[in-house]
Write a protein that binds this DNA or RNA. Structure first.
Lengths: 134, 134
DNA sequence: GGGAGGTTAAGGGAAAGTGTTTAAGTTAAA
DNA sequence: TTTAACTTAAACACTTTCCCTTAACCTCCC
């Protein structure tokens, strides 16, 4: 029963990295190429992302689908859309306009460019008014 | 670039489960055996555990183990224990007594019942005096 | 230009994970 | 006791991940 997503190799690299060592230095210590250290580090960070995404999914489990932000939508128009849909469901969104926009962009920056939605974003809400994106 | 630890199959089962369906019912819906549904669900829960453990590792990356709150300990005695250990390490805990207790309980409510520690809690601290629990 | 730090791509062998079936085993409730 | 719900083990085909090498590329900065 293995525990954690990260392999020993990946943890090793992350620890050295945390200490401030360069990939080259680490490569010498663990007897491999710097390209390999880079790959291992990248894999580690990817695993960490996947761990985060996995736990996010849990939240969407007890959340319901609220609406979809369609590609091309003006980001500034998202809040009123979301508020309106939440009201239909009898739910109160936990965020004000400003923090809602910030949360939208912080959650997945690659889906917005400037004020525009680049890719459909699914909006979920739970009973506490927390929002999740899929 | 895959995202999240859970496979589509695993998410599917978890969603049906959340709705209250039995493994047998799910098996019929997704056209397989109930034993298989059980296996898939188990794998899903294991993956969720691994995701949690992965993120916990991140905290311990720049934190050191401070002490252990043993099962049965009075929650109100935790702060002085923690302060004492932190002082030994030359570190200042970021929280006062009240907020420390609140943080302890908020972090993992299932580990405390009333004033008592129900299950060993590992305390970690980083250079900023932040506390993490494992 | 050349060096240091970092990244990417292609490929390969070993290891691990996934979904599945079959068959046997609990456990708790009617 | 019988039944429904759930768990477990073994085995198999299949896919993915991991670590590694080699060889290239990028971006600063001297």
């Amino acid at each position: 029963m293995k525990q954690g997503l990260l392999t020993d190799r990946q943890k090793e690299v992350l620890r050295y990295r945390k200490k401030g060592l360069t990939q080259q230095q680490i490569a010498e210590i663990i007897h491999t190429s710097k390209a390999n250290v880079c790959t291992i580090e990248k894999a580690a960070l990817e695993n960490i992302s996947r761990a985060r995404e996995t736990l996010e999914f849990l939240y969407t489990l007890d959340a319901i689908h609220l609406c979809t932000l369609k590609t091309g939508l003006d980001l500034l128009k998202a809040p009123e859309l979301i508020y309106a849909e939440a009201e239909k469901q009898g739910l109160k969104v936990k965020y004000d306009t400003i923090s809602l926009i910030n949360r939208l962009r912080d959650a997945n920056p690659e889906r917005f460019s400037g004020r525009q939605v680049r890719e459909d974003v699914e909006i979920y809400i739970n009973k506490d008014g927390d929002l999740y994106f899929g």
